[in-house]
Amino acid sequence: MKPLTVFGSRFGGRVALNPEFVLERAQRYYLLNPTLRKVTRADFFYAGFYLGKVKNGIFFPSFNFLNILAPIAANKVVLDRKAAWLFICGRDIFRKGIVKLMGSQQRGDYTLVMNEFGECLGFGVVTGNLEEDGKVAIRNVLDVGDFLRREF
C-alpha cells in the first residue's frame, strides 16, 4: 500500500483504498472487490483493477490508478486538442498547449494531464518553465500511448 499512497501524495491527493482489498503479487498491486477476492487463487496472472508495480524501488502507476487519482489529485493541467494529441504520442508539454493549471505547479511536482473532456491522459513532471513560451513546461512521464508502445 505504501508505494500507492506515497505516489498519490505527490499529486497533492490522499489515496484511501481499503488495504483488505489491495492484493500484492510479485510487486504488482491489484484492487479486488470482495467477490473477486474469494475466487482468486495465488497463481493468477492478472486480477481485478491493476494499480501499478514497483520495479527497482520505483512505483510505476497503471492508468487505472491515475483514474482513481484524477478526482482527488490537486495537481492537474488541462491541454488543448493539439497538445493532448502530442502528449499521447509521447511528447512533452509546452506552455501554449495548456488551457488550465490546477494545484501546485512548482518545479519537480507531479501533475496529472487531462484532455478537454476531463479524461486523464497520463502524468508528467513540472519543469519550472510555466511562464515561458517555447520551453518545455511539463515533461512527459507516462501517457496512454504506452498501450501501443508496450505491445510492439
Binding site: 484492487l31 472487490n33 473477486l36 482468486t40 496472472f45 486480477a47
Partner: peptide, 9 residues
C-alpha cells in the same frame, strides 16, 4: 478499466 476479471494461464 475492467474491474471484475481474474486471469489464469
Amino acid at each position: 478499466h475492467v474491474r471484475c476479471c481474474v486471469v489464469y494461464g
